Computed example of a mutant assay.
Amino acid sequence: MKIVVRNAVSQDIAELVQLENTVFKTDRISRRSFRHALNSDNSALLMACEIEERDGTVIESIVGYSLLHLHQGTRLARLYSLAVSHLARGKGVAQALLQASEQEALSKNKIVLRLEVNEHNIPAIKLYEKFGYRKFGHYDAYYEDLSNALRMQKRIRHLSQERVSVALPWIQQGTPFTCGPASLQMGLAALVKSYMADPDDELQIWREATTIFMTSGHGGCHPMGLALAAKKRGAVAQVWLSDKSPLFVDGVRDALKKDIVTRVHSMFAKECDDKQVPIRYFAMTLSDLLMAFDGGAIPIILISTYRMDGKKAPHWVVLSGYDDQCIYVHDPDPSSNEHSSVDCQYVPIAREDFEKMSRFGQTRLQTAVLLSTT
Rank of each mutant, 00 (worst) to 15 (best):
M1S: 15
K2P: 00
V4D: 06
V4E: 14
V5F: 05
V5W: 02
V5A: 01
V5S: 07
R6H: 14
N7A: 14
D12Y: 13
A14H: 12
E15P: 00
E15M: 05
L16A: 08
L16Y: 07
Q18G: 04
L19G: 02
N21D: 13
T22D: 08
V23A: 12
F24G: 04
T26H: 14
I29H: 11
S30L: 10
R32T: 08
F34E: 03
F34Q: 01
L38S: 01
L38T: 04
L38K: 11
N39F: 11
N39L: 12
S40N: 12
D41A: 13
N42E: 13
S43M: 11
A44T: 09
L45T: 09
L45S: 05
C49M: 13
E50A: 06
I51R: 08
E53W: 05
E53T: 15
R54V: 13
D55M: 10
G56N: 07
G56P: 02
V58Q: 12
E60D: 05
G64N: 04
G64Y: 03
S66L: 00
L67W: 12
L67H: 13
L70D: 07
H71Y: 15
Q72W: 01
G73A: 07
T74C: 03
T74Y: 00
R75Y: 00
R78W: 07
L79E: 03
S81R: 08
L82M: 15
L87D: 15
R89F: 06
K91H: 15
G92F: 13
V93W: 05
A94P: 04
A96T: 14
L97H: 06
L98H: 06
L98W: 02
A100V: 00
A100I: 00
S101T: 07
Q103W: 00
Q103V: 00
A105Y: 01
L106R: 09
L106V: 05
S107L: 04
K108I: 00
N109T: 04
I111T: 13
V112N: 02
V112W: 01
E116L: 07
E116Y: 02
V117M: 12
E119W: 01
I122G: 03
P123H: 14
A124E: 03
A124W: 06
I125N: 08
K126E: 15
L127Q: 10
L127H: 10
Y128Q: 04
Y128M: 09
Y128E: 06
Y128G: 04
E129Q: 15
E129D: 10
G132Y: 07
G137E: 07
G137R: 08
Y139P: 01
Y139M: 11
Y139G: 08
D140K: 14
D140L: 09
Y142W: 11
Y143P: 10
Y143Q: 11
E144G: 08
D145T: 10
S147R: 14
